[in-house]
Design a protein around this nucleic acid. Structure first.
Length: 104
DNA sequence: GGGTTGACTGTTC
DNA sequence: CGAACAGCCAACC
């Protein structure tokens, strides 16, 4: 399966996220050079459930929401908490600050 | 080639 | 402070 340049970049960046750290769709989008393409980023992850090669569960929404997950959001939350990351309803990026992973 | 869809976001009510 | 609205982008039909 061939991936578009966009998807390749997304997966590459997400793969860079170390365990215990969390990033957001917007952050990844910004790293791509498309700050407004957060939706497309989520889309790319949605269609590429490379669970082993890509820790897609470490990417959450900017507003603190858990975000979506191909295998259920509950599963995603479980994985995150397992890595020591608590995700609440409206936690805002500020609260993530210590856990956020910034690219470049 | 045009319209729809979705793992989103920032702004407005 | 919480809910609704309207943009934005790439893949799919």
């Amino acid at each position: 399966m061939i991936l578009t340049n966009f998807e390749q970049t997304v997966l590459t960046l997400v793969r860079r996220i170390p365990a215990g750290r969390v990033s957001t769709y917007a952050l990844v989008a910004r790293a791509l050079g498309r700050p407004e393409a957060a939706r497309a980023v989520g889309n790319a992850l949605h269609r590429n459930p490379q669970l082993v090669t890509t820790p897609c569960h470490r990417v959450v929404r900017s507003d603190g929401q858990i975000g979506g997950y191909r295998q259920g959001s509950s599963r995603k939350r479980a994985l995150l908490e397992q890595e020591g990351v608590t995700v609440n309803r409206h936690q805002s990026v500020a609260n993530f600050e210590q856990a956020l992973y910034r690219f470049s």
